[in-house]
């Protein structure tokens, strides 16, 4: 079966594929600056191991959210190392150690190009500098 207008379709396809893959080859071999989230100074361990927190903190946050808002279980939580934290709370828990959203949260979120909407309602701690 003959194909019509090959001389138009083929270059068109090539241009399309080139444009679509532009970000990949433009950035190839360059992973960008690796994010360096600021570590808290007042605690050594988080409520879960670092590996888990790095990949799944959002799952944990959702679980805490449902526990607090829906089940009224705000209670104290213990970390892997036995350190006790007061409250399942972003503002009154997490951010008491991770004092800067800019230097902690945004560091990776910007790198990964995700935009969580936490701070549309919850209030970021005041940035100190």
């Amino acid at each position: 079966m003959p194909m019509y207008d090959m001389n138009k379709i083929l270059p068109g396809l090539i241009i399309f594929a080139g444009l679509m893959t532009f970000p990949i080859w433009y950035n190839s071999g360059n992973a960008g600056a690796v994010p360096k989230p600021e570590k808290p100074t007042n605690a050594k361990e988080c409520v879960r191991p670092t590996d888990y927190m790095r990949t799944s903190h959002m799952v944990l946050l959702n679980e805490y959210r449902d526990a607090v808002v829906r089940d009224g279980e705000r209670g104290a939580i213990k970390d892997a190392g036995g350190v006790e934290y007061d409250e399942k709370s972003l503002m009154l828990g997490c951010m008491k150690c991770h004092v800067s959203a800019k230097k902690f949260c945004d560091e990776c979120h910007t790198y990964a190009a995700v935009k969580p909407y936490c701070w549309e309602c919850h209030i970021q701690p005041k940035e100190t500098n």
Partner: peptide, 23 residues
């Protein structure tokens, strides 16, 4: 008040009987 969230546009709100204080 830095200890309580605000809301965002597009959601309904009302009294919560201060469940955060009751806790």
């Amino acid at each position: 008040n830095p200890d309580f969230p605000t809301r965002t546009r597009g959601v309904v709100e009302k009294c919560n009987f201060c469940s955060e204080r009751l806790a």
